[in-house]
């Protein structure tokens, strides 16, 4: 799948990076502004750690499968 240009894993990395950044960013905003969404277990700040996890995973895939790199 890599011989034909951009790897699917790179596309996945880009999507996860964008989603992770958006959700993580929103989670930080909630945390800093002491504003929590009206959902259960909001005190666990899931957007921060789940968004952070998506972001980290996305960045890893972006780097590992970036176009032009020999996988």
């Amino acid at each position: 799948m890599h011989s034909s240009g951009i790897s699917i894993w790179f596309f996945i990395g880009v999507l996860l990076t964008i989603y992770g950044a958006l959700i993580f960013g929103y989670g930080l905003f909630e945390f800093a502004a002491h504003h929590t969404a009206s959902v259960e277990l909001a005190n666990l700040h899931a957007p921060v750690w789940w968004g952070g996890l998506l972001l980290a995973l996305g960045l890893f895939y972006d780097f590992r499968f970036r176009p032009g790199r020999n996988h």
């Binding site: 969404a37 277990l41 909001a42 968004g51």
Partner: peptide
């Protein structure tokens, strides 16, 4: 999903 997922996560 509605019970646990706030903005962004619900969209996901």
């Amino acid at each position: 999903m509605v019970r646990y997922l706030g903005p962004g996560l619900l969209g996901l």
